[in-house]
Design a protein around this nucleic acid. Sequence first.
DNA 1: CTGAAAGCGCTTACAG
DNA 2: CTGAAAGCGCTTACAG
Lengths: 335, 335
Amino acid sequence: MAVTLRQVAQMSGVSVRTVSNVVNGFHHVAPETRERVQLVLDAVGYRPNAAARSLRTGRTGLVGLVVPALDQPYFAELTRAIVAHATEQGFTVVVDQTDGDPERERDLLAAGPRGAMFDGLILNPLALNLADLEASPERRPVVLLGERTLSTRHDHVHIDNVAAARAATQHLISLGRRTIAGIGSQDSPSGQSARLRAEGMMTALAEAGLPAHPALLRTAPRYDRTVGYQQMMALLDGAITPDAVFCFSDMLAVGALRACAERGVRVPQDIALIGFDDVEETRFTTPSLSTIRPDKDAIARSAVERMVARMQGDDSPGIEVEIPFELVARESTGA
Amino acid sequence: MAVTLRQVAQMSGVSVRTVSNVVNGFHHVAPETRERVQLVLDAVGYRPNAAARSLRTGRTGLVGLVVPALDQPYFAELTRAIVAHATEQGFTVVVDQTDGDPERERDLLAAGPRGAMFDGLILNPLALNLADLEASPERRPVVLLGERTLSTRHDHVHIDNVAAARAATQHLISLGRRTIAGIGSQDSPSGQSARLRAEGMMTALAEAGLPAHPALLRTAPRYDRTVGYQQMMALLDGAITPDAVFCFSDMLAVGALRACAERGVRVPQDIALIGFDDVEETRFTTPSLSTIRPDKDAIARSAVERMVARMQGDDSPGIEVEIPFELVARESTGA
DNA sequence: CTGAAAGCGCTTACAG
DNA sequence: CTGAAAGCGCTTACAG
């Protein structure tokens, strides 16, 4: 079907070695030879066979990216950035979504059926624990995103979730709010980010000498709009009405905002609202949403950078890369 | 590094042929042989080398999915559905984004550097024209999404954009609105969907005997929130103020909604608004957005189905698959 | 039911 | 600077 290197060699009257050299842009080819071969290459529309090349070199140029859900704006935006950076480095990204299913995350980490074809993995685990990560027989580079897992084996790119949550809460306190609720805590042992954000929130409350009413810390099994809506409704129906809510993700905040609108609660006059992630949507809600902005492009760039470094033989212990964040004050907190 | 078939064969005292049969679950293997080999397979954690297998079989199990932008909610949701269906069929999806760059779309269609590794392509072109499609030397299955290109070579999965736009406009008319604007037309020769939606809108206006003010049809180079915002502002600042706006995409509508809110224009009382795509976000805006809901899951399923059929040898001329849509009336049109 | 062997298309030491 | 040849790990006709 497709034209092979050998056929091109025959057509140009040189050896496959020389054609290979031309295709791969190696130096030691006589200019006139190169030109002649290139002419044939173009004429027949030669395309190297990726499988053969991989078999020979042991590399596929494929990087697996595993995120909880592609259609969650934060991951969609992050995926976009990672695909862009990886492409620039000559890698092709294969995207997988786990829906936070620990089984699927473990499978992908263990290089299941398709995992075998990746040169490396960028993984944003939701449910994986330290034991899973340490136990993985994986020899190829794995870069972890998002959670602080304390794995010493893998590189890890993250923001300081405690500090970010603390900053978000302090922002609410600085507005004079005193009854501050949170939406997004998780009971499951796997919810690392949730725990860190709750911790940051509690720290800020304690520092300001404010009480942390247990009833005002609402859980969120998933960080989506529906859960945010439901939990905000629960808060509005509760015994203690908050005057500010810190949502652990923007999607939760979008749902919460909708609940407030339905109930005629004014944001920020009655209740101030802040989210987390700075997805584009937050700039267009009414009121626009204050949020925490992790530098997504820096996360993507670092993840790809670490991956490439590992592929090039860097075998130092797992590196922690901390990416900066920024508080973005918008209308939902009175900006 | 990794264990090979040959090594497993030696360890189990059988030929590679037999090990291969066991790995691939073929019939003619004696039960006790199978068991013995399987034990070794498990013990050493054997993983088939995907490159070798591909080289041998000529297939990679990889399907390329090309969308304009991963972080646009419509494409994020569609991608999610396609990845799910393709995975179910045993394929791995490689996602690429073109940002509507015709050059990139052409490259990917022409099976550029990385395109060579795909068994097939699912392509949502923004800028590609018929000539590009017909000229492509591509021999592998290509399924087109979204645009009516009239290509006779490739299968095409789409909704009836004219009918959908007509339905959206009729909906606005049925509310008693008489000065109806549109946001989303495109001048470029490539904007097929835009043209069809404008056509559907004009048809509905003509059928109702309503005028189509040129100043009320606003262009949108990109279908994102920012453009929707800007064009809605332009409408509000214009000589003729509309009492209803049909946005050719939900993102445009979200931006338009924000513009109305900033200007104190009440939706739907002053201006009714309808979008297109039914992305999740539209259910959570205030007011929630009426829209056109294409059956995304059916689009994804059909696309993968056509792809698989082509891979299995179906060589009939390009097939048109029309997917149903539905009008969803929400608060932005008074529901 | 199982084995020995060819060959998929490439890269790359080894010669020259 | 170029050629002849080995071999990456697998699948699969061909024998037996």
